[in-house]
Design a protein around this nucleic acid. Structure first.
Lengths: 340, 340
DNA sequence: GAGTCCCGTGAAAACGTTATCATCACTGCG
DNA sequence: CGCAGTGATGATAACGTTTTCACGGGACTC
C-alpha cells in the first residue's frame, strides 16, 4: 500500500509521483480550484500510495491560524466542568476544530501566566476559559490582548465575552422553592466562590433577603464531598436547620450521608437540595432534589461564540441557559408545617 | 505597554525594534546559543513592548513536530475516562506538552477514520488512545503507521504499546472475595466489552470457572446506570441472586437503588460490588464495596510511554497498576451463611 | 608578534504548504 | 478567421521561525 520512504512524505513527493506540480496537489486537497478528473485521479492514487498526510503546521503557518481551540479550566473531572468540556469538544469536532485542554492548577499570578504561555505557545484559533472558580477568574484577567477569548461562567462579567449559566437565578429559584414550602430559612454549603456579588451563593443570599428571612452564615466546603459530610455531622445535631442548599450535588450527597448516619430523616426532618443535576443524584435514597444546569449546551454556545469572534460574524443569540428545578425526594415541608 | 501594530508582531518586528538580527532574537528565545547580556536585554524589552509571542505553527514546521499529544477517547465524562485524561494532562503539562482531546463517537470504520484524520490534521508529537471500549479498539486498529501511539487498556494487547490497568486480575480479586464469603456464585452486570478474552467480564468468568462455580448469563447494561437500575428491578425478585459484581460503580449505584426500592437489604440479602473507586460510592448507604483502579497513574504512565517512543529512549518500567479491593458496607456473607 | 581557536553575530537556507500571478490551450462569438 | 473570454496549470512568492554557514574580532598559545 504505502511505499517506504526515509522520511514522512511531503507534498513534493506526491507531486513527483503523480507527475503534476505541487500546487495542483494542493488544489486537489483543498478543492479550492477545479482540477481535471484525470490528474485528480493520479494525485489521489499517489496520496494513497505514499500514505501522505498534509502537515498541519505548514497549513497553519500560511493560513495564519489553526483549527484549534484552547480550553483553560481549573479542573476537568468535576461534573459541571467535564460536561462543559464535552459540549465544547462536540461542537468543535462537528465544525472541524480540535480542542486542547490545559488545567490551571492554582490562581497565583505565576502559575496562571505560565499556564497561559504554555497554551498559547501553540497556534490556537481561540480560547475558552472555564470561569467557574478563582483560577478561572485569574486566567480571564491575565489573558493577553489580541487573542479571541470567551469565558464560560455562572454569571455575566466584563472584559471578555461571557457565555453564562445563570447561577444566581438558579440559586434563587431553589431557595424560593424551599421558603415556599414553609422553611423559615435555608442554610447553604457553598462551593468555592467565583465572585462575591454573583453566582450560587449570591442568589441564595438574595432570595433570603428578598423574603425577609434570616441569612445564616455561609459554610464553605471547597469541592470536597467529605468536607460536606463533616459539616453535615455537626448540622445533624442542630434543630434549627430544616433546609440546606448545597453548592453542587456532590456536596449534597456528602451531606445526605452524614444525616443518614446520624439518623436524621430526609426530607421529613431536613430538606436537602443540590445543584447541577448529577445523574447519580437521582439514584440516591432519597433521590436528590437539584437545580439542573445544561452544561453541555453552555459548552456548545461558548464554542459558537468563539467561532463568531474569529470569523468576525454576528455571534449567535446569546441566550443564557435556563436552569431547571428538578424536585425529587430529598425536599419537602419542614417538620413544623407537617405537624399542622 | 504594547505598541499598536496593524498585525500581530512577528520576530522581524522584534528584531527591528531591538536593532538586532532575526536569529539573535530566536537565540534569546530558545537559549540555544549565548547572546551578549546587552543585546539580550534589548531583545527582551522589545518583546515586552510589542507583546510578541512566537508563532507555534512556524516553530512546529521547522522542528518537524509539536509539543502536542492527541488523546482519542470514546468518552470524556465517565469516571475512569476523565481520571485517565486528568493523569495524561497533568504529566503532559509538567513536561511542557499539551493535550488535544478528540472523542470517537462510534466504532464504525468511517467515523473512526474521519476522527483520526481530524486529530492528525494537526501536528502532533504522539497519540494516546483510551482503549476502554469498542470505539477505542477500532481506533487503535485504524491508526496509520508512522505515528507514535500508545494504548491505555484494561489488559495487554498487541500491535501498539499498551499501558495497562489489570482489569482481569481486578475482577478476579473481587469475584474471589465474594466466593470466599460463601456465595455459591456471583452475577455480573457488565459494561460494554472491550475484548472477549480479557477485561472485567473475563476476570469474573475466569474466577468462577476456577472455583468450579456456576457461570450465570452475563447481563449487559451499556454505560447507563438507569439500565442497571432496570436490571436490578428484575434481579430483586430472584432468590438465587446473592452477589452481584458490577462493571463500574455507576452501574452498582443504579442497582443499589433498585434493590432499595424493592426492599431488598444490602448486604444482608444481596451483596453488591462495584468497580473503579468512584468517590461518591463511599457516600452511599450502604457504602459501596469496590475495586479501586489508579486511573490517574495509568494516564501518567501512558504519557511517559509516548514520550519515550518519541525520544526513542527506554520506556519507564512498565508496571501495570495494581487494583485494590476496597471493602465497605455493600458486601458480606450470603443469607445462608448468616443463618448458620 | 604571529598563528590558532573560540565566541558572538548576521546572511541565507530550510521547513511544507497555500496564494498569487502569468501562461497556455481551448471555446464561443462576431 | 480573428479576438475576447474562460478554465486549467505551473512557476514563484509568501507565511515565521530555527538551523546552518561564514565571518570578524578578541583571547590565548608558542
Amino acid at each position: 500500500m504505502s511505499r517506504s520512504l526515509s522520511r514522512t512524505p511531503a507534498i513534493t513527493d506526491v507531486a513527483k509521483l503523480a507527475g503534476v506540480s505541487v500546487p495542483t496537489v494542493s488544489r486537489v486537497l483543498t478543492g479550492s480550484v477545479p482540477v481535471s478528473p484525470e490528474r485528480r485521479e493520479r494525485v489521489l492514487r499517489a496520496i494513497q500510495e505514499l500514505g501522505y498526510r498534509p502537515n498541519g503546521a505548514a497549513r497553519a503557518l500560511i493560513k495564519g491560524h489553526q483549527s484549534v481551540i484552547a480550553v483553560l479550566a481549573g479542573a476537568t473531572t468535576r461534573y459541571g466542568y467535564a460536561l462543559t468540556i464535552q459540549g465544547i469538544e462536540e461542537a468543535a469536532r462537528l465544525a472541524g476544530y480540535i480542542v486542547m485542554i490545559t488545567v490551571i492548577e492554582a490562581d497565583d499570578p505565576e502559575t496562571v501566566s505560565k499556564t497561559i504561555d504554555l497554551a498559547l505557545a501553540n497556534p490556537v484559533a481561540g480560547v475558552i476559559v472555564l470561569k467557574f472558580d478563582p483560577a478561572g477568574i485569574a486566567t480571564v484577567r491575565a489573558m493577553p490582548p489580541g487573542v479571541p477569548v470567551v469565558a464560560v461562567a455562572g454569571s455575566r462579567g466584563s472584559g471578555v465575552p461571557h457565555v453564562v449559566l445563570d447561577d444566581t437565578t438558579a440559586a434563587m429559584t431553589a431557595t424560593d422553592y424551599l421558603l415556599e414550602l414553609g422553611h423559615r430559612t435555608v442554610h447553604h454549603i457553598a462551593v468555592p466562590l467565583a465572585g462575591r456579588r454573583s453566582g450560587r451563593s449570591a442568589g441564595w443570599r438574595k432570595a433570603l433577603e428578598r423574603a425577609g428571612a434570616e441569612v445564616p452564615p455561609l459554610m464553605e466546603a471547597g469541592w470536597d464531598p467529605h468536607r460536606a459530610y463533616e459539616i453535615g455531622l455537626t448540622l445533624a445535631d442542630r434543630d434549627d436547620v430544616t433546609a440546606v442548599l448545597c453548592g453542587n450535588d456532590e456536596l449534597a450527597i456528602g451531606l445526605l450521608r452524614a444525616l443518614h448516619e446520624k439518623g436524621r430523616r430526609v426530607p421529613e426532618e431536613i430538606s436537602v437540595v443540590g445543584f447541577d443535576g448529577h445523574p447519580l443524584g437521582a439514584l440516591w435514597s432519597p433521590a436528590l432534589t437539584t437545580v439542573q444546569q445544561d452544561f453541555v449546551d453552555v459548552g456548545r454556545r461558548a464554542f459558537g461564540e468563539v467561532v463568531a469572534i474569529i470569523g468576525k460574524s454576528q455571534p449567535p443569540q446569546n441566550s443564557s441557559g435556563t436552569p431547571q428545578l428538578v424536585i425529587r425526594e430529598s425536599s419537602g415541608p419542614p417538620p413544623a408545617a407537617r405537624r399542622r
